[in-house]
C-alpha cells in the first residue's frame, strides 16, 4: 500500500516537472526575456533619477541603483549574444532596442548623480517606452 502511494506521489512529481518543463520551454524566449529585463532595469533607473532630481535620494544610493541597472542590461545583452536557436529577426529587434539603453545607462552612470538633469530622465522614459513597444511586438 505504502509502495503504491510512493509510486503515485513520484508520478505526480514527475508529471509536474514535465509539465513545468514544457511551460518553461514555451516561455523561455531569449529575445523577449532580455527586452523584459532591460525594460525593468530602465524603469528602475528612471525612478532613481526622478527621486534624485526631487532631492529624495542620496548620491550614493542613486549611483548604486544606476550601476545595478546597467549591469542588468549588460547581462541581458550578453545573454542575447550567447543564445542559440532563436529567430534572427527577433534577436535583431531585441539587440536594436537594448544597445542604446546600455549606451545611455553607461553614460549616466559615468557622469554620476551630481550631474543628472531632467533631460536624462526624459531620455530614460523614452527608452522605457521603446522597450515596452518592442516587448509588445515580441509578444512578451
Amino acid at each position: 500500500m505504502a509502495h503504491r502511494w510512493g509510486s503515485r506521489i513520484a508520478a505526480v512529481i514527475a508529471a509536474a516537472v514535465l509539465a513545468g518543463g514544457c511551460a518553461q520551454v514555451s516561455a523561455d524566449d531569449p529575445a523577449a526575456t532580455a527586452v523584459s529585463e532591460s525594460h525593468a532595469a530602465v524603469a528602475t533607473m528612471a525612478l532613481a533619477v526622478r527621486l534624485s532630481l526631487d532631492g529624495r535620494a542620496t548620491n550614493q544610493s542613486t549611483q548604486v541603483v544606476i550601476d545595478d541597472s546597467v549591469e542588468t542590461v549588460a547581462d541581458a545583452q550578453q545573454s542575447l549574444m550567447t543564445s542559440s536557436g532563436t529567430d534572427p529577426a527577433r534577436l535583431q529587434l531585441a539587440e536594436t532596442v537594448i544597445g542604446p539603453v546600455l549606451t545611455e545607462g553607461r553614460r549616466i552612470a559615468d557622469r554620476g548623480p551630481d550631474n543628472l538633469s531632467a533631460a536624462d530622465l526624459q531620455r530614460l522614459q523614452q527608452l522605457e517606452q521603446e522597450l515596452a513597444d518592442a516587448l509588445e511586438e515580441l509578444g512578451g
Binding site: 525594460h39 525593468a40 524603469a43 528602475t44 544610493s61 541603483v65 545595478d68 542588468t72
Partner: peptide
Amino acid sequence: GIEVTTLSQ
C-alpha cells in the same frame, strides 16, 4: 513594471 532583483530596488 519593476521586478526586484537587487537590494538597491
